[in-house]
């Protein structure tokens, strides 16, 4: 028996989408400040966030709580070599990460689409 309200996929994907877009902001901020003297490149530790979400889901079936958006603690500074003006942005790294992060986001959306399509098939009795 499939019940959409029991489905854990939606809250998890929702959190991941939220985190990916959050990270896109941080990466974008690094690109915007690539020439700002003294600016330290920042990032969100997305991978560790991801694993803790998954860890939450395995403790008990009933104990799923969507992650709260308490982001500040998870920002960290990259330890890139410093340029003479004190700036630590590595533009190649940032553009690569932005692309990767974007693809990650699109993958999640695609996954969600597939999920919705499956549910729709069930709702409409096999598409009839």
């Amino acid at each position: 028996m499939i019940s959409p309200s029991d489905d854990r996929t939606f809250p998890i994907i929702q959190d991941l989408l939220s985190w990916t877009s959050k990270r896109q902001q941080a990466l974008g901020s690094n690109v915007a400040n690539m020439d700002t003297p003294g600016y330290r490149a920042k990032d969100y530790s997305f991978e560790s966030e991801l694993s803790s979400t998954l860890a939450l889901t395995t403790t008990s079936d009933k104990h799923i709580s969507p992650m709260t958006e308490n982001s500040n603690a998870r920002v960290y500074e990259l330890d890139n070599p410093e340029k003479p003006n004190g700036n630590t942005v590595d533009i190649d790294r940032e553009l690569t990460e932005i692309t990767k992060n974007g693809v990650q986001y699109l993958t999640l959306v695609q996954y969600l689409n597939q999920k919705i399509r499956t549910l729709r098939t069930a709702i409409t009795d096999g598409g009839r």
Binding site: G28, G102, N113
Partner: peptide
Amino acid sequence: ANLAAISIVKTMINRTLEL
């Protein structure tokens, strides 16, 4: 570089709208 970042975000938004 900023333009490239914007265009990626734009794709992300467009895809979300088609969800």
